[in-house]
């Protein structure tokens, strides 16, 4: 027993230094030299001001912007400092209430739109910070944005098409649209 205690404690100390200090510092060092922009949060800077991260979604409910996924973070949606899903089970009435209120909001803001609503537009993401929606969810909102902003729907649809990110390497993941980037481009479109 005694002969085991000394190596146990010393080895724990040595492995702590190697894996707990040297390893993360080494990775940080290399990361900061090779991928500084990515390692620091993929921030979007405009006119010297940081206005978001391209990886972290923001909350939109103004009809003039594209809306993203529902977010279950508290105390406000898309709180990046406290990621969370809704954790509603598939038969929980609260799930149906949340989904129905999103459907109602979509319908109320665009009553003439009879397209079927894509499922990702009415459900909460796992992180509460999903930066993306599906292309279908973006196209669904094109008519509302066009009407509110007084633009042609074809212009909006062209903008969406330009912002579709395909599957990585051609087959990994799902096609998607970054909502924050799309909305920034939308504001730009209007300015021009």
């Amino acid at each position: 027993m005694k002969t085991l205690i000394r190596p146990a404690l010393l080895l724990l100390l040595v492995l702590t230094i190697i894996t707990g200090i040297i390893y993360p510092l080494l990775v940080t060092g290399i990361a900061q030299i090779v991928f500084p922009e990515r390692a620091n949060g993929s921030l979007i800077v405009k006119d010297g001001k940081t206005i978001g991260s391209e990886l972290i979604g923001q909350s939109f409910d103004d009809p003039k912007y594209f809306w993203g996924r529902l977010s279950a973070t508290g105390p406000f949606a898309y709180n990046a400092a406290a990621s969370s899903g809704s954790n509603y089970g598939p038969t929980n009435p609260a799930l149906f209430t949340a989904v129905q209120s999103r459907i109602d909001a979509l319908r109320a803001s665009d009553s003439s739109n009879t397209m079927p609503i894509p499922v990702d537009l009415v459900t909460a993401s796992g992180s509460g910070l999903d930066p993306h929606i599906s292309p279908a969810a973006a196209y669904y909102q094109a008519s509302r944005i066009a009407r509110v902003r007084g633009l042609e729907e074809s212009e909006i649809r062209a903008l969406i098409e330009k912002h579709i990110e395909g599957r990585q390497l051609g087959f990994l993941g799902e096609p998607r649209v970054n909502v924050l980037k799309l909305n920034l481009a939308l504001d730009n479109l209007v300015k021009q």
Partner: peptide
């Protein structure tokens, strides 16, 4: 509830509650 869950070229469909669009 009239929600479109069928997979197509423009969205993955399915049970997206608690899932991320990129996956």
């Amino acid at each position: 509830m009239g929600i479109d869950q069928k997979a197509g070229a423009l969205h993955s469909g399915g049970n997206m509650e608690g899932k991320e669009v990129r996956f």
